[in-house]
Design a protein around this nucleic acid. Structure first.
Lengths: 361, 361
DNA sequence: TTGTAAGCGTTATCAG
DNA sequence: CTGATAACGCTTACAA
């Protein structure tokens, strides 16, 4: 059906080998026959069969992307970026969704290896897995780079090639920013999940709070798990409950002047919830979010946020992978890319009143 | 390196054909040798080389997903769903991002066909393309189903297999809902883009407004293109400008009691912008959005919205594709899935005062 | 029930 | 500079 090397070779009464070489511009083939072949190929609308080429070469020019949490704007952004890089380099990308589950990840990875992928990018932090599991299960027969937004202890990855976010920078910048604006009563809001204690974002937050002499870091964490659930593919906030809890928090902590929200959705929620309570952002309370979901920029006021440098991370991951695929480099290597602090309008000068009060119901 | 059919055949001193059949549970092979082979295969950790199988069979059990607009939560949700369906059916999926551009789409599609994909799902509406272009360029040598959230005139697709959203239902439901709540001064907000006039959402909105006897539909559209731009991979709202324009609108249309926002980001923006102006939602003005971005549920109040039935659409698209791939069905067929209207709290009873007034700056 | 051999569309080695 | 030929790993008539 489709035109093949043989079919064009036959038409020209020459060998398939010659056609193959000509079409790849092998300088061994004389210019004249090269041209003859190429023009006929074009005429016959020849397209190389890449699966045959893959079989022959043992390389398919494909990579697999194991996507962790689905339904996230950030996942899609990463994929688009990866696709762009890969495509420019002549690769095609398979994507498999793993829900952040280690076993699913491993299973899909092996399937993709069976498909002949030349390399793998594995996104996910696997907070529920043990260090040993990570070290053993995440080793594959093709070059692999791990990719994680937030890290749960670096040691687990010491034998891998990995790109991660260095959250400490962003958090420190955010807290310094708030400090300069006069804040000291800074709290972190979080809706927790299994394994959260190991998340570097908390640890760095504690550190930063303590280094400013604001007291014990842990005392500045206000968290709840009741209002946050992973339903199907989405994280769900129980808004009514969250509204109540926020009000309760403010009553028991009227001294609070600034809140850092570890979930972007919650930051969004909080901004409008405060407006409803008659509390102005940033005049009465300053808010800082995490990640850079586009809607954060369209919140009123637009939200300042500690953001993952998604593009840079994808760039590095791809580069690491290409080193592995095209230059056989596979020595362990961890690249941590500093998170950014994006200043918008939700963090402002500290208010003058000591205590906050809720006007509206 | 990896164990192959031959390597296990050799160990057992039998032919590769037998091994091949045994491993696929061909009943021709005696149970006993089948077991012998299978257990050795397991022991040797045999994984079939799917690219070789693909070459042999002329089918790869892969499909290509051409993703339109990137960086959208909805894109990621669709992908995850498609991946789930495909994987259960034994398929793997390539994804290629096209930025909604027809030529990129065509180019990537052909690349994927060269990779041997068995079928293609093409997402995108291509508002800038002519009917002729759509009819000719979107035809490929493998089963293809088109997938579009909003349609720009159905006629262009009459020779394709397609799944789309029937927006009319959702819009009618939304407007009926508002009507029952006493609203008649209903407006639609939109930030426009090339080709927007053809978008069914406007057309259905006009229809619905007029069928209620509210007057001319077009008079109820408030649109601007200055504040909406497609910067890189993201749609950008100029929030300050949008804030001003919203204020201007309310001053010139103080009778407005309900607003339907065609962009979800804008609905989000509008809710918090109104809060800032001292206008309560829904007590003073009701808001309805489009699509169902998760953050819309976490807005305060949570936003009522006309939502794309993403899962159903993906289900149908996959089914259509499988018909094409596995049963050679390729007669044109269009499936329109009714959009849903999700009632949350941003649309409420119409206010009693005739005119709205802005209290805060 | 099993073995043999051709074929899928390439690339690569080795002669000529 | 070009042509044979083997090889990649698997499936599948056809034979035995």
């Amino acid at each position: 059906m489709a035109t093949t090397l043989s079919s064009i070779a036959e038409k020209l009464s020459i060998s398939r080998g010659t056609v193959s070489r000509a079409l790849r511009d092998d300088s061994q083939i004389s210019i004249s026959t090269r041209n003859r072949i190429k023009s006929l190929a074009k005429e016959m609308n020849y397209k190389p069969n890449l699966v045959a080429r893959g079989l022959s070469l043992g390389k398919t020019q494909t990579i697999g992307f194991l996507a962790g949490s689905p339904s996230l704007e950030i996942t899609s952004t990463m994929e688009a970026k990866l696709d762009e890089l890969a495509n420019n380099a002549g690769y095609e990308v398979y994507v498999a969704h793993t829900k952040g589950n280690l076993d699913i990840t491993v299973k899909r990875a092996h399937k993709l290896i069976g498909r002949g992928v030349d390399g793998l990018i594995v996104k996910g932090a696997f907070p529920e897995a043990t260090v040993k599991e990570i070290q053993t299960k995440l080793k594959f027969s093709v070059p692999t780079v791990l990719f994680s937004g937030t890290l749960f202890g670096k040691s687990a990855y010491s034998s891998h090639r990995l790109v991660c976010q260095d959250v400490s920078i962003g958090i420190r910048k955010a807290i310094n920013h708030l400090y300069r604006l006069g804040h000291s009563q800074i709290y972190m809001f979080s809706m927790c999940w299994p394994g959260w204690e190991k998340d570097m974002r908390f640890i760095e937050f504690y550190k930063s709070i303590e280094s400013h002499g604001f007291g014990k870091g842990q005392d500045r964490l206000y968290s709840t798990d009741e209002s946050y659930a992973n339903k199907g593919t989405r994280h769900i906030i129980d808004v009514d409950l969250a509204f109540l809890q926020t009000k309760k928090f403010l009553k028991s902590h009227p001294e609070c002047t600034a809140i850092i929200c570890i979930q972007s959705e919650f930051a969004l929620f909080l901004t409008s919830a405060l407006a409803r309570m008659g509390i102005r952002v940033p005049q009465d309370i300053s808010i800082v979010g995490f990640d850079d979901v586009s809607t954060m920029a369209y919140s009123q006021p637009p939200l300042s946020t500690i953001a993952q440098p998604v593009e840079e991370m994808v760039n590095s991951a791809f580069e690491l992978l290409m080193e592995g695929i095209e230059r056989d480099i596979d020595e362990p290597k961890q690249i941590a890319i500093p998170s950014k602090f994006i200043i918008r309008q939700s963090a402002g000068e500290v208010r003058s009143e000591k205590k906050i009060s809720i006007t509206e119901k």
